[in-house]
Amino acid sequence: MTLLTVSNLTKRYRRGGKAVAAVDDVSFHIDPGETLALAGPSGSGKSTIARLVMRLIEPDAGGVEFEGDDFLALRGAALRARRARLQMVFQDPLAAFNPRATVARVLDDPLRIHGIASRTERPHRIATLLERVGLTAGLAPRAIHEISGGQRQRVAIARAIATKPSLIVLDEAVSALDVSVRGQILELLLDLQRQEQIAYLFISHDLGVVRAVAHRVILLDAGRIAESGDARAVIDAPRSAIGKALVAAAPRLHTKRDAG
C-alpha cells in the first residue's frame, strides 16, 4: 500500500496580475519507509509542494491521499489529529521555533496536543525523545536560542518523531548546517527510518546529498516534473536538461579544478 499519493497537484500565485503556476500538475507517490527526494533549482516549486502536502497552504487543483484517506477533505479537529502522522522539519533550525521557547516546551506541545502522554509522564517522554536524537535529557530546560544549530535541528527531529509519524517532510533540513554536523543529522535520519519505518519527502537542492540518502528522486523545473526515477540512476545519468544542468553545477573536489 502506498503511504502518500499526490495526483495532479497545482498551485498558482498571482504576480503582477498574472497567474504563475508554482506547482503545475505534479503527481507522485511515497511508499512506507521510503525516501523520495524532490530536487531542483530555486523557484522550481519543491518547497511549495512540501507546504501543500503538509496543508500549510491549499492547492488550486489536485488530490493528496495519505494513509488511504483524502487528506485534502479533512477539516478542523480531524485534520489536526491526523497531522500527528505527517510531520515536517524546516531548513532554518532557529526560525522553526518560537523564539521564547525552551527545548522542553517544544517537545511538550505535540505530546500534550495529541494526548500521547499525561502531564506527569511527559518529562520522562521528553527525556527519552532527546536521547533518541542523540541529545542529553539535561538539555530540556535550555532556551532554543542558547543551543547550537546542530542541536536545534536534532530537537526539531525529536519534535517531528514525538507523534510517531509515518511520513516526515524534510524541507532543506540539512542545508543550513555545517558539513560536519550535516553528516551526523543524515545518519540520525536514516537510523530513525530503519528502526521505525518512517518515510521521508526529502527536499534539497544538493544532488550529492540526495544521491546519498534517497531511494527515488523527482527533478523539478518551473513547477513541473522534469525527470524521476531511482535516485542514483537519475543523478548518475540525467536525461532532462535541468538534470544535466544540476549535475554539471554540483561542486566537485577533484575533477574540474583546472578549468580556470
Partner: peptide
C-alpha cells in the same frame, strides 16, 4: 557529499 559519494 559529492556526486561520487557512497550511498548512506
Amino acid at each position: 557529499i559529492g556526486l561520487d559519494a557512497a550511498s548512506l
